[in-house]
Design a protein around this nucleic acid. Structure first.
Lengths: 331, 331
DNA sequence: CTGTTAGCGCGTTCAA
DNA sequence: TTGAACGCGCTAACAG
């Protein structure tokens, strides 16, 4: 590896002069500067980030934590948005694996892992209310951090999320416009803010539109097709039937599967509206409330960069959008 | 941030003694060792990786390059395998964004980017034959590297891939067993080794089984539903019709769409067999040749660790598996 | 405008 | 068994 010393020797100057050229500082003669630049290029030289960050405390690295990122098609798109913005600004991304240091640390040592790698900031995604206690030391530290879909704030912490409450209202309002009054909701992701918010929005609209609320039409589960499938089977056995189902995309797909297995059809027998707009949903022509996943990643990145620059740390709430597919009908 | 000096002072020993404790070296008294360990724990101390890698040249970081990783559901699963193995071994993953240093570098500076970040090794994925020239400096360097689906070898370079040739043969053999003789193939990913290999396997089987080969049944395109859709529309207009279609999953799904739009059915009118076994395919009950994506990531990681340890660098070819869905029928 | 020196946090000789 | 001194590659004060 070619180092600053190599360049200095070849250019017959001191390494601090080379350093000044690298950082484009003033106080270097035009001819020496040119000479140094020439030799740098000839040798494919670029200053080592690791050594650099040791003395500057700036690594141009953003840490990423998330227990479910890689096997989740939602976060995959968020990641895409992060990459675009951070790449433009000259940052690389350090994905922290689940490696553990010591049994006494388990995986609550976010702060130490960040300090250990000198990251300039960290994006946390895929965590719910249940994990909050784990973030204690991180939140109290000086490390700039942005949470996705978890409303934590602090002097160096903020968050980005979609307008889940408003999105759920949109879903109910759309169904109501089509004439639906009896609406079931299947929730996944228990203990996650997104789920709570959507439930709140659902209830707000039910009340505002004077629609009947029936606790038998409310279901809980995890974020899976299976939850939708099993919940829908229960709905099918109900005496008083809803005419529409509201559920996150993957769950909605499971529900559709159960409906079809029962010899019924969507939207003829039940209208189904999803939430998220994941790729798979498009193959079902699912009517859904879309989030802007890439936008979430971009917004999180810009917010984090602002926090790093000590500019602003106001949370960002992104709007949702109704996408009309073929799974809802007028009744 | 608490450093080795803080610990040394609090324990009233020199920092080199602390260093010896950290690295579990011999030559430290039991009582001093215990005292130091106690103070380390009390202060949530862990040695800084950045500083450490500067002197040891070992960063416990694996670099990841890939132009299409994040928006590709195939590589998402590969990534999952990488994370599992690397996490176990104490490595974190550095995802290189598309940031550029200088117009004269464009994005061919893999070697320098690796050196710049002191990564211990690098996994390259999503590249094809067309990119080979870009890897010249990387391959000639000492940096341990593993390519996924690109057969590059060297003293510190190796690769991992699926048995694409054999997989394609399996597909044709299965169709032949069902009575199909006239088989069309739609290829995506031009310029990529996987595509070439699959085509070779296809032709081998056609020859071995004495099936008719018709150049009008061969189609090229990119890896997209659209390619499948458009190619299938052309097939539908052909005088001499094939009875079965072989194509990568996403392409196969596009073909199915075209078939259905024409008022025909799968597998009644055409049998369709895919390759890859991506998640979306399961929603179509696609018969397909499955690769082990997670296994690819795991194998690449283990191979890279072996190269790092100077153990072995033999390429790894993973077997494929026929998954019988509902898109092929006996004729 | 240029070079010398010290220090970032850690590992590694080599004396003591 | 311990610690002082040096170096990893770079930046930043400070002299000259």
């Amino acid at each position: 590896m070619v180092t600053i010393n190599d360049i200095a020797k070849k250019a017959k100057v001191s390494k601090s002069t080379v350093s000044k050229v690298i950082n484009n500082y003033s106080g270097v003669g035009d001819d020496t500067k040119e000479k140094v630049l020439k030799i740098m290029k000839e040798n494919n030289y670029w200053p080592n980030s690791v050594a650099r960050s040791l003395s500057t405390k700036k690594s141009y690295t953003i840490g990423i934590f998330g227990p479910q990122i890689l096997n989740n098609f939602f976060f995959r798109e968020v990641f895409e948005g992060i990459e675009a913005v951070m790449g433009d600004k000259g940052y690389d991304l350090l994905y922290f694996t689940n490696k553990q240091w010591d049994e006494s640390w388990v995986d609550y040592s976010y702060k130490e892992k960040c300090e250990n790698r000198n990251v300039d900031g960290v994006i946390m995604m895929g965590y719910g209310k249940v994990n909050i206690a784990q973030f204690d030391r991180l939140l109290k530290s000086e490390i700039p951090s942005v949470f996705i879909d978890l409303d934590l704030v602090g002097s160096n912490t903020s968050y980005v999320t979609s307008d889940n409450t408003g999105g759920a209202r949109k879903a109910v309002e759309y169904l109501a416009k089509l004439g639906h009054k009896k609406i079931a909701m299947i929730r996944g992701l228990n203990g996650f803010k997104v789920s709570t918010d959507r439930f709140v929005g659902f209830q707000q609209s039910i009340k505002a539109l004077n629609l009947p609320y029936n606790s038998k039409w409310m279901f809980d589960g995890d974020y899976s097709m299976e939850t939708g499938y099993q919940s829908m089977k229960k709905i099918l056995r109900l005496e008083e039937q809803p005419t529409a189902i509201f559920a996150e995309d993957l769950i909605a797909i499971g529900a559709i599967k159960a409906i079809r297995e029962a010899g019924l059809n969507v939207p003829e027998d039940y209208s189904v509206i999803g939430f998220d707009s994941i790729e798979v949903g498009r193959h079902y022509h699912l009517t859904t409330i879309a989030q802007d996943q890439i936008g979430l990643g971009e917004a999180a990145s810009k917010l984090l960069l602002n926090i790093i620059d000590q500019k602003s740390f106001s949370p960002i709430i992104l709007p949702t959008r109704l996408i009309i597919g073929e799974t809802c009908r007028e009744i």
